[in-house]
Amino acid sequence: MKALLCKKFGPPESLVLEQVESVALDARDVRVAVHAAGLNFADTLMIAGQYQVKPGMPFSPGMEMAGVVTEVGSGVTRVRKGDRVMSTCVYGGFAEERCISEDMVFPIPDEVSFTIAAAFPITYGTTYHALTDRAALKPGEWLLVHAASSGVGLNAVELGKLMGAKVIACSSTDEKLQIIKGYGADEVINYTQENIRDRVLAVTAGRGADVIFDPVGGDVFDESLRCIAWEGRLLVVGFAAGRIQQIPANHVLLKECQIVGVNTAQFIKHKLEEYRSRFTMMLRWTAEGRLRPLISATYPLDQVPQAMAVVMARSVTGKIVIAIR
């Protein structure tokens, strides 16, 4: 099979496409013929050696994928050969096939394409966990979403509205903000032209944001602490800015706010069945049109480095998907 390989940590152009041998199945593994794989910012960090997970060399990046089960291990009970599935696979998605535990594959409704499903698990799984389990977002609360045009940010806008929140979305261009408005944002902020703190306080009549969704970190986190509401919850989702912030404890004390970490891998470890049930629900919402995953572009497997460059340039709205078959 063909697989895109990272043989040493480095930039996207260091990746190579090669023929590799298929791996043997363990008893509870399934083999999936990959049709499409989602591209995430974390993939660019992983190949650079800057992500918390560092696979052994060589490895294929690609944290999520969708395809058809072609073989099952002797102990598999959840799926059958021929099933359409998607998976959170951490790495290995940018290949023609992937072997993975049956626990980490999820059935896809017939109404949902492989392209849509491939872009689903990482960002929707993270966002739902963040807003429900970690923030306990309530109807009527103000939700501030940073990087709202990114895959995870746009999902936060969309799910936040479904949960009844009033959403303020931040992005870098008016063009991106127009798309975000189409996903339900009540207020938008072009952070290249407006001060985030001042605008949030104006919109919320001085209250501040009850929940802040922050996949950026760095200066954005610092600004968030200045516009969080009393008893607000600031979700630490990632550090796309590159600087891991230090938290001034006096701000936490003064606002009686919470700084809340979001690590979906821990949720999966401790509450796997609940994690699985959420995809059943959210994929049903997608089939019904209540969720509308935005795919901005698709690239073939041999153009993953070019696709990664687009992601790293922050010029993507929604998700990019890699077409494998």
Rank of each mutant, 00 (worst) to 15 (best):
D174S: 15
I228F: 03
A209L: 08
A202G: 07
P139R: 12
F9M: 08
M312R: 08
G261F: 11
Q178I: 10
A209G: 05
A119D: 04
V157C: 02
A229F: 03
D174I: 03
G182F: 10
D186T: 09
G73D: 07
Y51P: 04
M281H: 13
R233H: 06
I47W: 02
Q245I: 09
G208I: 12
Y124G: 01
L39S: 13
H35S: 14
D186Q: 09
R197A: 07
V90P: 00
A287M: 01
S74Q: 12
L177N: 04
V311H: 02
I196K: 00
E175T: 13
C257P: 08
N195S: 08
T298K: 05
Q303C: 11
V72Q: 06
V310G: 01
A265Q: 07
C6R: 02
G82R: 12
L15S: 07
S150P: 03
Q306N: 13
K176I: 04
I244N: 05
M281N: 10
E273W: 08
T88D: 02
M46N: 09
L291A: 02
E102R: 04
P121C: 12
V53N: 07
K176S: 13
L283Y: 00
A130E: 03
D110T: 14
I189V: 15
F41T: 02
T264M: 12
G49E: 04
A202Y: 01
R134N: 07
C257V: 08
L25Y: 09
E231T: 11
E187Q: 14
Y191H: 14
E187T: 10
G38C: 12
G289H: 02
I268V: 15
S224D: 08
T44I: 11
R325D: 08
V90T: 09
R98T: 06
A202S: 12
V152H: 00
T123Y: 03
R284M: 10
E102M: 08
G208Y: 07
C99V: 13
Q258D: 10
A265T: 11
G92C: 09
Q52N: 06
N40R: 06
A297P: 04
V53R: 06
Y275S: 07
L283T: 01
T264V: 14
M163C: 10
V236I: 15
V32A: 00
G153C: 10
W230H: 12
I122H: 02
L301A: 13
A240R: 05
D198G: 10
I322E: 09
A265I: 09
I179P: 01
K161F: 10
I108R: 04
M63G: 10
D210N: 15
T123C: 11
L143F: 07
H146M: 14
I180S: 04
K166A: 05
E223M: 13
D186H: 12
V304Q: 07
A209I: 06
V200W: 00
L234K: 00
F239I: 13
A37Y: 04
G75N: 04
T286G: 03
V145F: 06
P61W: 00
G182L: 14
D133S: 07
K81M: 15
R314C: 03
T317C: 04
L15P: 04
G218L: 05
V72M: 09
M57W: 01
G232W: 00
G73R: 03
L234V: 12
G140H: 06
V304R: 02
P109N: 14
H146V: 12
M57P: 05
P300G: 09
K319A: 11
D43K: 04
V152P: 00
V260K: 11
S315Q: 15
D103L: 05
F41I: 06
H270V: 07
